[in-house]
């Protein structure tokens, strides 16, 4: 773990709580999924929590994030209430998109989440556009695009970096490199060049860090967000991590040969939540009791969110034509 030294205990604890909220929410979705009441595909981010937590820790409520098919963690870290999120998974009118979007299309405009897209790469230029708004309105907001290693091969990624650099826009590009796009390993899709190195081709800084070390994420993201906010322009951050579950759904995909079992095993040992929890205890930031209390609080929120989600009504068929325009 990167040392915390100058980071306040309050921030350190908040980071942990965010990671726990993501982990426990995703775990719960995985456990409940076989009930078949969540009737939409879910792309879980278990194993990748540190990135969402470490980046969003620097964002104000009014800052923007843009995300992908795998967005639960980003939205939680940005402060989204778990209840409308759960209700959206359950397809209820009480869901954040009134049941129209499902897991892949979370939204929370109050918390700077103007929507999420399941078209790979689609969110990247949208984040640049939000940064353009911030620049035009001079409101000091920063925009963050979360996307995967796979998305970095889309044309829009290069086009977005170019324009953001040209206009010195307040945007941070956060690539979560989990080494797979569905079941395709990174090396089947990209030459062995770090994604982060593409930044230099567009004249912007890039930084590569361990995505399972929340403090490493926190520090690199801090620089990038500050730079954006101060008018210094965009940064590309590449974080290496691993998703524990299969591309979609609650099962790991190891059984059907999608990824090597030993690789999966090795990454389970690098659990970002455990690593950081232990670090906080060893450095006397949190006691066992503190952690217990935090866990209980988070579990309670999740219980309430699931109950809220289940209790809602599904939209009536007669409301099919709502919200098109």
């Amino acid at each position: 773990m990167t040392a915390h030294t100058d980071i306040s205990a309050e921030v350190l604890k908040r980071l942990y709580e965010t990671m726990l909220r993501i982990r426990l929410f995703e775990d719960r979705v995985a456990v409940l999924y076989p009930e078949q009441l969540v009737k939409c595909p879910v792309h879980l981010c278990i194993g990748q929590e540190a990135i969402a937590a470490g980046v969003c820790a620097h964002l104000a409520k009014s800052d923007y994030i843009f995300s992908t098919h795998r967005s639960h963690g980003h939205c939680i870290a940005k402060g989204m209430d778990l209840r409308p999120m759960a209700a959206e998974l359950y397809g209820k009118t009480t869901g954040c998109a009134h049941g129209r979007g499902g897991s892949m299309h979370l939204v929370d405009t109050e918390n700077g989440i103007p929507g999420t897209t399941a078209i790979v790469g689609g969110c990247i230029p949208l984040a640049v556009g939000a940064a353009l708004t911030a620049r035009k309105m001079k409101n000091g907001r920063v925009s963050v695009a979360f996307f995967g290693d796979g998305a970095s091969d889309e044309g829009v990624f290069q086009e977005s970096l170019n324009y953001a650099s040209l206009m010195k826009l307040p945007v941070v590009f956060v690539c979560e490199n989990n080494f797979y796009a569905t079941n395709s390993p990174q090396k089947a899709r990209q030459p062995e060049v770090n994604i982060v190195e593409r930044a230099s081709g567009f004249g912007i800084p890039g930084e590569l860090a361990d995505g399972n070390d929340v403090l490493a994420v926190y520090r690199t993201a801090q620089k990038a967000v500050e730079r954006a906010r101060e008018g210094g322009g965009p940064t590309l951050l590449e974080y290496r991590t691993y998703r524990w579950k299969g591309h979609v759904g609650p099962l790991a995909d190891i059984e059907i040969g999608c990824r090597p079992a030993d690789e999966h095993e090795a990454w389970l040992k690098k659990c970002p939540v455990d690593l950081y929890g232990r670090y906080l205890q060893e450095n006397d930031v949190m006691s066992d009791q503190d952690i217990e209390a935090m866990l209980a609080r988070v579990e309670k929120d999740i219980d309430e969110a699931i109950a809220f989600g289940k209790a809602g009504q599904e939209p009536a068929g007669t409301d099919l034509y709502d919200y098109v325009y």
Binding site: K39, C40, A97, P315, T318, L320
Partner: peptide, 16 residues
């Protein structure tokens, strides 16, 4: 298809 993007929830899928 009704002239609407595809909804996520099942009640609307049925209508869709």
């Amino acid at each position: 298809l009704p002239f609407v993007p595809a909804p996520a929830c099942q009640s609307l899928e049925k209508a869709y």
